[in-house]
Simulated assay, not measured.
Amino acid sequence: MSRTRASAKKAGATFERAIADYLAARVDERIDRRVRNGVKDRGDISALRAPSGGRVVVECKDYGGRLLPAQWAGEAEIERGNDDALAGVVVAKRRGTRDPAQQWALMTLADLVAILTGERHPQ
């Protein structure tokens, strides 16, 4: 059976909820799914912060085809800019497991450095 737009949206919402709940239980209870906020998307998860306090944007992907890391990292970068956040991370569904802890976390090295140092360096 192929995915319809409705089934893809439902799968995406379920995946976002699982990731938000996992992060809230282990990082900060204020983390939650972000309410949609118009054309300036700011990611799927709210209230995630780096140790330095800078905001981290999370773009969740429960995809039906193949991994598209370059495209998704580009989306996360746009959302990071929209939110004036420190870094952007993509959390992508790992086929074969529903365990939130086993999903892929994808980011650029610049985003990893920003999270670790608390500073966004020019690229």
Rank of each mutant, 00 (worst) to 15 (best):
A13W: 10
R30W: 03
L23W: 06
E75A: 05
G12E: 11
V90I: 13
A24S: 14
G53W: 10
K40S: 11
A87Y: 01
G88L: 02
Q123F: 14
K40F: 11
L109D: 03
D83I: 05
A25D: 13
R3E: 13
I45K: 01
T14V: 15
P100W: 07
R17T: 15
R55F: 11
G81A: 05
L116T: 09
K61A: 02
N37V: 08
N37R: 13
N37I: 06
V58Y: 02
V39P: 02
A11L: 14
D84N: 14
L48R: 01
C60G: 01
A47D: 15
K10R: 14
E16T: 07
E16V: 09
T14N: 09
D32I: 03
K9W: 10
E29F: 07
I115M: 07
G54P: 08
P69S: 08
Q102A: 15
V57T: 04
G12L: 13
R49W: 09
A92W: 01
V91Q: 01
A92M: 01
A101T: 06
L67R: 04
A18G: 08
R94D: 00
S46W: 05
A20F: 05
R49C: 12
E29H: 11
E75F: 05
D41P: 02
G88H: 02
R55Y: 12
V39E: 14
E79G: 00
D28W: 07
G64D: 15
A114F: 03
R80N: 01
E119S: 11
R5M: 10
S2E: 10
R95V: 13
A85P: 05
E29T: 14
E77M: 02
S2Y: 12
D62F: 09
K61V: 04
A76D: 04
K61C: 04
D32Y: 03
E79F: 02
S7Q: 09
S2A: 12
D84E: 13
T97Y: 05
Q123G: 08
A110K: 00
A6C: 07
R42Q: 15
P100T: 12
I31R: 01
R49T: 14
T14A: 14
V56W: 01
P122K: 15
P51M: 10
M107G: 00
G53Y: 12
Y22V: 02
I115K: 02
I45G: 01
V90A: 01
A101W: 05
M1C: 08
V58R: 00
M1W: 12
A8T: 14
C60D: 03
P122G: 14
R42C: 08
E119H: 14
G38P: 11
G74T: 03
A92T: 04
S46D: 15
D28T: 07
S7E: 15
L23I: 04
T4H: 08
V91M: 03
P100L: 07
D99N: 13
A110W: 01
G65H: 05
L112Y: 11
D62Q: 09
V91W: 00
Q71Y: 10
D99A: 12
Q103I: 06
I45R: 01
P51H: 10
I19L: 05
G118C: 10
D41T: 08
Y63V: 11
F15V: 12
L106H: 02
V89Q: 00
